[in-house]
Nucleic acid binder design. Structure first.
Lengths: 200, 200
DNA sequence: GTCTATAAGGAGATAGAC
DNA sequence: GTCTATCTCCTTATAGAC
């Protein structure tokens, strides 16, 4: 039939994989299911990816790369630290609610990878990437608004991830965006309590 | 061979299921694997459980029942609200770290159930049970120490679960109990900030 | 290059010998 | 009651026809 460039097949399969994982869960995201979702014969999967695990790894990479550019726009105009924190957290939630696929898929993959010796480092890598991303926001917020953090930045970052992770986990089950927003607002207040005016 | 009562087989299979799920993950907790872990022939599984899903449901019930009696002992002597909150949260973490199987298995099962139409209600049931359990502590704390909560109790409870869920999710990947404890302490401070002396 | 057909193995569930 | 053997289906991965 039609000859298609490997990179185009790869993109199509990754997009299909994202859809299947978000819709049906990792356990049902077989190579057959992904290939079918991409309207390709089953064998095309292994023409592009060495294995099912390799597809999952590349999908994580692709999701994280796409996400990293998102939050920055939401906070660029924030006039105060409170606005900055609120915009960042609520912006994250709004994006997840409006287009859940990436968020859902990433949680599915992390949970799946956690218990797999071959993929455990993938779960660690996701947290490492999130940590780096959130850390840049925490440091930027301190610099921009002339505050310092009462506790080590690492602990601030970790707490941000605890709150977003906990909110996401609950939202994945009940899909209650309003309640999620209230929990997130409580987390925001806690974060604001960790900041104090820098001396000098 | 030996005739074994169905209830004894059930108990043995549930214990084996807990071990396999905690050790290898839901994806590897097949009926064969669970039966083998329990030193029983494969067919015994279906002699006790109608299906794999039924075993998972009963395992959740058994874990939740065992857990609900645990935290109460940790807070019975707390002289202040701060001690109460700290003891409850750190007590939960200490128990999870000392004996991770139940905590790990429950997270595995909730994640697994989330994306299954047949089991989604299981994930909801787990949150409902946790909500009821935490709510009783939140109300008891208010009564015992003469404080009222600045926001609806439902939102306090939800925030508690956000924090414990977020802490657990991270801990499941990096097994860093010290960092988890620091995040939990931040959550405890946030909770204490939601309490105020009751008038009169 | 493409894709059908199949290999090889694991799953849930069950029939039927003992 | 117990458990071996098997049915049926689905998985990842690959061989080989076109």
């Amino acid at each position: 039939m039609q000859r298609i460039a490997v990179e185009d097949r790869r993109a199509g399969l990754l997009a299909a994989g994202l859809r299947v994982i978000a819709r049906d869960g990792m356990a049902r995201a077989s190579t057959r299911a992904v290939a079918a979702e991409a309207d390709m014969p089953t064998a095309s999967f292994h023409y592009v990816f060495a294995s099912h695990d390799a597809m999952v790894e590349q999908l994580v990479e692709s999701i994280l790369t796409a996400q990293s550019t998102g939050i920055a726009e939401a906070v660029v105009d924030a006039p105060t630290l409170r606005d900055f924190v609120t915009a960042a957290l609520q912006g994250w939630l709004d994006r997840a609610v409006a287009d859940p696929a990436a968020e859902v898929a990433l949680h599915e993959i992390v949970c799946w990878s956690r218990s797999s010796p071959e993929l455990h480092r993938l779960a660690e890598a996701v947290y490492a990437r999130y940590t780096a991303s959130v850390a840049s926001f925490v440091v930027a917020a301190g610099d921009r608004f002339g505050v310092r953090w009462r506790i080590p930045v690492d602990d601030v970052v970790r707490f941000v991830l605890v709150v977003t992770d906990g909110v996401a986990a609950r939202w994945l089950v009940d899909r209650d965006a309003e309640s999620a927003g209230r929990s997130l607002a409580l987390g925001a207040e806690a974060l604001l309590g960790l900041a104090q005016e820098a001396a000098g």
